[in-house]
Design a binder for these strands. Structure first.
Lengths: 226, 226
DNA sequence: GGTCAAATGGACGATGTCGTCCGCTTGCCA
DNA sequence: TGGCAAGCGGACGACATCGTCCATTTGACC
């Protein structure tokens, strides 16, 4: 389920082109990790040992490159949700989900930026997967609430709140693992049923659908006009 | 105490220059709020109705402009700390501090960006004020812990964790007040002594000194060489 | 009103990034 | 092994932003 489906490209490419594509993605991860996802495209190309034209042919926009470069991490997120749902212990499932995504954000340089960049992602082709992810997460939440381990006033949008704020923290302090772990621990504790003391303010209207937790296809190849 | 001290400039300026300076700051707030703190300097100048040269003479770097534009908000942060310390109720003091700073981050567009930009601020002239702020905050923490309202394993660096993650959230979702309020409520709840359930991971090594909670001077005028 | 230093504005050269165009190379298949 | 479409690279023109320079204006003070 978490696997990237392929639309057309990549397999039908000539051998050298496929090799270059991999080189580009690998270079992109390194460069984005070091200089942020706004690093010059030419830097990525140079690092990959290809010309800029090759880079642009494969990935017409920076966005497409970013998506493809961090596709694996996105898939891991999606898989984490599936696994969380499969966990017999509802709290552990929930906790694992949050910890897995946050660990990914903490350890994979550049991924946080890609994560928030992908956030208001209204791409057509992902709509179905996202809807499914939202359903799954709501199931997870209800199950944990029914078991009395997740506080009753937890709202699905709180996941987005947690993940985005954590994203902000690791972006501001990419080297401070302790800070990240600390935040995750605080948040998870406050999500537990026992932590519910006073009333919370109204939840955000955020739709979970926009969170990059959905299994997602790799970037598509645009057909170069005939 | 929260007042900006003035080093030299601003009062000794000619009337028209002082007027332009105010115009520039006002324009900067608007432009930074709308386009982020990396908006072109020329945009700020145009909006202020002055030439770029005037802008650069007053604020030689973008950083200086950002600082000056949000000086008032920074002062409010500093004042919040003083007031927190003056509050007879240790928890309420602590809570008010967090809420005040976060509300500022939530309501003042552009301020979050300025806040994180100012974060690793090792400016010489602020050293004393920052050290004082750190002392004050540690006093606040100890007092609240002694009263049994703040969890014993709360570490001063957790304030930075809270503020930076909140900053990240409002940066990602500038229009979602509910999300911001929600995060603040969760964090405050998890800082309360009753919330302490399991053990937390080790605190960050972050120094509070780097947080923009210190009263700070307005930007200095550089003497045009001669 | 006259003087002068302070203040001004916008033109300008420098720099950096983008994305395309086009002539050359190379893998693939017969 | 030869033909050719797929693939390639880097030069190039367009564009945005920076920060300075300098001829001109203006406020302050006598």
């Amino acid at each position: 389920m978490g696997e990237s489906s392929r639309i057309a490209g990549q397999d039908s490419l000539r051998a050298d082109a496929r090799r270059n594509r991999r080189r580009i993605l690998s270079a992109a991860r390194v460069v984005f990790a070091e200089h942020g996802i706004n690093a010059p495209m030419a830097t990525v190309a140079r690092r990959a040992g290809v010309g800029v034209a090759t880079l642009y042919r494969r990935f017409p926009t920076r966005d497409a490159l970013v998506r493809a470069a961090f596709a694996h991490q996105m898939d891991t997120c999606a898989r984490a949700l599936t696994e969380a749902l499969a966990d017999p212990d509802p709290w552990q499932g929930f906790q694992r989900l949050v910890e897995t995504v946050c660990e990914l954000q903490r350890e994979e340089r550049g991924f946080p930026a890609a994560f928030v960049a992908a956030f208001p992602d209204s791409t057509r082709e992902h709509a179905r997967a996202r809807e499914q992810a939202e359903q799954d997460f709501m199931t997870l939440v209800r199950r944990a609430q029914a078991a009395g381990v997740l506080r009753a006033d937890f709202h699905p949008s709180d996941l987005a709140v947690a993940l985005l704020s954590h994203c902000g923290l690791v972006t501001a302090l990419p080297d401070d693992r302790a800070a990240s772990r600390r935040l995750v621990a605080y948040l998870l504790q406050s999500f537990r049923a026992e932590a519910a003391h006073g009333a919370l303010p109204a939840p955000s209207a955020l739709s979970l659908r926009s969170l990059p937790l959905a299994a997602h296809d790799s970037q598509r190849q645009r057909s170069s006009g005939a």
